[in-house]
Nucleic acid binder design. Structure first.
Length: 448
RNA sequence: GGCCCUAUCGUCUAUCGGUUAGGACACAUCCUUCUCAAGGAUGGAAGCGGAGUUCGAUUCUCCGUAGGGUCACCA
């Protein structure tokens, strides 16, 4: 599929103008699936249209912004493979914001207002308010269509705490303009902010960017995601052993789909087919069940090397160097939905019998109504047959070939169940041929 | 409450006026099987309500209803 520029269709856009999108998080908390998706959609839209994607850290609120969160954003971007063409730290543009603020005041488009501080301290300070022209602002949202607001309701809103401290709306407008942002792709909660920002754009004589407001990613109770509602930060999903590709895929299909029945997408595919027009208007719950499914699908695709790179940190120390471990790849692969499950798998004792001879409880050695003597008889019969099989051809198919005729003659359950229990000591386990092939001839015969 | 946005299975969604309303996840049953896991098959499951427009509405319009967002000297 070729990269067809979409912006030619957008009214008022020049064919030659390069698309520039941005993701502008404020580093005041962990980034969850919702913010992550906003970033990814803005990134994909830029990629799809051969444009530029900018990351801008909006840290103008010094009280709440924390460096650790900024670092987290960089690190998550790197892990999941979202790259940006340019990076800005908003607080570093403060001189520019102040300059614009002054200009607005000089042109009487904003004014200093002496007011009592809102924090209840009773202090009188000078804050800066925008002189609202009080008109109806209409903009065309790329996802929702035309949205109109009578800005009279907004009053003369505040754009700076004082002459030294410009606030969000001013900073956003100035930065978007200076950075050449053509498409502001952000979450739905910003719809209400858009008219204000358009007013500032107009006052400054700046071109107004295109807007696309993404639906919210919702908590299971259908309300906005938040820490309080247990929204899981993306770093945490990563830490639990969800694969970056799976996370990316799952989150991308939350609120968007290409209109086909394909569900598994590589990043490259996404970069070629992503389209704002197919973005849903309604909010969507981010389903962990589906994420788990995606993760299992992606675990299947992992190479042996990749698999162990992810699995190793979760293997208990005592098993780490065992020569048995590498043989367990398929058994583990089939039984986990995320890599932290590896730990559970080992700690539950389900894997112990691969490393040491299990104690076999005679009570569970017998299949259904069969007798203990029979069970023992079958086991020694199998043992006899298997001892004839050479070490060099000790493999799943050959073992099964040798055992099955006898099992069919004596009753499969009667034979296979005791064999499996003798090898594993457990009521539940992989099938006996698989265990035997992994244990090797010597150990298998010993246990039988 | 004002303003704004939204509305198809439990969840994510397809449908761009005419379909037995399709798929995926989850769930259930069955098959495969000595058990578990995996795999395969099948099944239950949806158009918020009411008016229009139309030969025909899930789809277009309006009114309700419900949910959500936003109303900071946060972003």
């Amino acid at each position: 599929m070729s990269k067809k520029p979409l912006f030619a269709k957008v009214k008022g856009m020049e064919n030659t103008q390069k698309i520039v999108t941005r993701f502008a998080p404020s580093p005041t908390g962990h980034m969850h699936a919702g913010s992550y998706r906003t970033a990814f959609f803005a990134y994909l839209f830029a990629k799809r249209n051969a444009g530029k994607f900018i990351l801008r850290i909006e840290d103008t609120d010094k009280e709440r912004s924390k460096d650790e969160y900024t670092e987290e954003i960089f690190s998550v971007f790197e892990k999941i493979g979202i790259s940006y063409d340019e990076k800005y730290i908003q607080s570093q543009n403060i001189e520019r914001h102040k300059e614009i603020l002054k200009k607005l005041i000089d042109e009487n488009k904003a004014y200093i207002s002496r007011e009592e501080a809102k924090d209840g301290s009773g202090v009188i300070k000078d804050i800066i308010r925008f002189r609202n022209p009080n008109k109806v602002v209409t903009f065309h949202d790329l996802i929702r269509g035309s949205i109109s607001t009578d800005t009279t309701d907004l009053g003369d809103f505040v754009i700076a705490k004082n002459i030294e401290e410009p606030l969000f709306h001013l900073a956003v407008v100035v930065d978007d303009h200076d950075e050449g942002i053509t498409h502001v792709i952000r979450a739905e909660e910003h719809i209400a902010n858009t008219p204000r920002q358009i007013l500032i754009h107009e006052a400054l004589g700046f071109d107004i960017p295109h807007y696309a407001h993404l639906p919210l990613v919702l908590a299971p109770d259908k309300t906005k995601m938040s820490k309080r509602k247990g929204a899981i930060p993306v770093v945490e999903y990563l830490a639990m052993g969800y694969l970056p590709q799976a996370l990316l895929n799952a989150i991308c299909l939350c609120g968007w789909n290409p209109g086909t029945e394909q569900e598994i997408f590589s990043r490259e595919e996404l970069e070629n087919i992503f389209d704002l027009e197919k973005v849903q208007k309604a909010g969507a719950v981010f389903g962990e069940d589906k994420l788990a499914w995606f993760n299992r699908e992606y675990i299947k695709k992992l190479s042996t090397q990749e698999f162990w790179d992810y699995a190793n940190p979760w293997i208990p120390e005592k098993f780490k160097d065992s020569p048995m471990l590498p043989k367990l790849e398929n058994i583990i692969r089939d039984r986990i939905e995320k890599f932290s499950d590896v730990k559970t798998l080992f700690e539950s004792g389900e894997m112990d019998y691969f490393f040491e001879k299990p104690k076999v409880d005679e009570k569970i050695l017998v299949w259904k109504e069969d007798s203990l003597e029979n069970a023992k008889r079958h086991i020694s019969a199998i043992s006899e047959r298997l001892s004839a099989l050479g070490e060099d051809v000790w493999e799943y198919g050959r073992i099964k070939e040798l055992v099955m005729p006898y099992a069919d003659a004596e009753g499969r359950g009667n034979v296979l169940w005791p064999m499996r229990v003798a090898l594993s000591g457990r009521e539940k386990s992989p099938d006996p041929f698989e265990i035997a092939s992994i244990l090797g001839k010597e150990e298998t015969l010993k246990r039988l």
